[in-house]
Design a protein around this nucleic acid. Structure first.
Lengths: 162, 162
DNA sequence: CTGAGAATGAGAATCAATTTCAAAATGGCC
DNA sequence: GGCCATTTTGAAATTGATTCTCATTCTCAG
């Protein structure tokens, strides 16, 4: 058996997340495992919106025996614990982003390079709420995604056209 | 062989759509077929957001030999022709709505009964544009979906709790 | 009416995600 | 430290939506 200890990468924030996860896990009879440690570690070492495939890839670098099912399962636990949130952008796969101490935000997604920018706009949120009320709706969650070309890819396209 | 003629259901609008489709089809060397007629007919006879399954179900009532692949293929053609638009709400399946002479709109989706309400809000669109510009983005399309309980289901929930 | 090309249906294939299951690991308990 | 009920794991099977393949059938311009 491989030793359980591993160099924890990442900031205080990821340390806090790991603690929260530990109590979440023990509080409901789950068990801490080497694989979960690796996956969680890998997840918090990155920033951005990771797909399960990407996470699996990186996790395998540390422990080649880790299987895809475990990554799926672990990310679901992280999401349940409120430490990650799942996003379903265009293109099929679910992506996860760190969720601890973050407020709500929406996304700009570049359809050319795939880069994702987060933004917050209080005014839009308010208007959404108003619209919903006008229709008698009680909104529990929403999805606002703006797709297009990022600054970088716009420039590139312009020069391609020359 | 079953006769090709069928009672065209629906309004002038669906008649217009059928004409547009006919010219789209002939203009690119595609062919008109009995199955496509049935599917298109069934699609325009309904209002709302239909899944391929629902369309297949109804199409089969008219012609039990129609296969799922044909419905997928036909709806893709309709979308390409600008007569239907595909929507990907939470829950997996693609849904299609009629698109002829409609402007852009977004959706309120009831997570309890599945009903879908459309809305337009010019102010939100403008703010989205502003946000995108602030980040150097050129937006090509977007997705705004508000999920929650519709008026009807809120009432039901309240009485369930008694 | 004919023939080239397009469309069809059934089933296989794909893709992301979930489930199954036998074997392995975990953690409270003594 | 060892026991052992319970949880986890990896691999493979399964699911669900969609797409593809291919042999056969249909459409339509000439």
């Amino acid at each position: 058996m491989t030793p359980r200890t591993l160099e924890k990468t990442g900031s205080k924030k990821s340390a806090a997340a790991r603690e929260r996860l530990a109590s979440w896990i023990s509080s409901r009879g789950l068990k801490a495992t080497r694989q979960r440690d690796v996956i969680v570690d890998v997840f918090f070492a990155q920033t951005g919106h990771l797909s399960v495939d990407e996470l699996l890839e990186k996790a395998k670098q540390r422990d080649p025996t880790i299987g895809a099912a475990t990554v799926y399962r672990t990310m679901k636990i992280l999401a349940d614990a409120g430490l990650a949130s799942a996003r379903h952008f265009e293109g099929g796969q679910t992506r996860y982003e760190a969720a601890l101490d973050r407020h709500h935000h929406d996304h700009l997604i570049c359809t050319s390079c795939g880069s994702i920018i987060e933004f917050e706009n209080e005014r839009i949120e308010e208007l959404q709420e108003t619209v919903a009320e006008d229709h008698g709706f009680h909104v529990t969650h929403h999805k606002l995604e703006l797709y297009g070309l990022c600054r970088h890819c716009r420039v590139e396209q312009a020069s391609d056209r020359r």
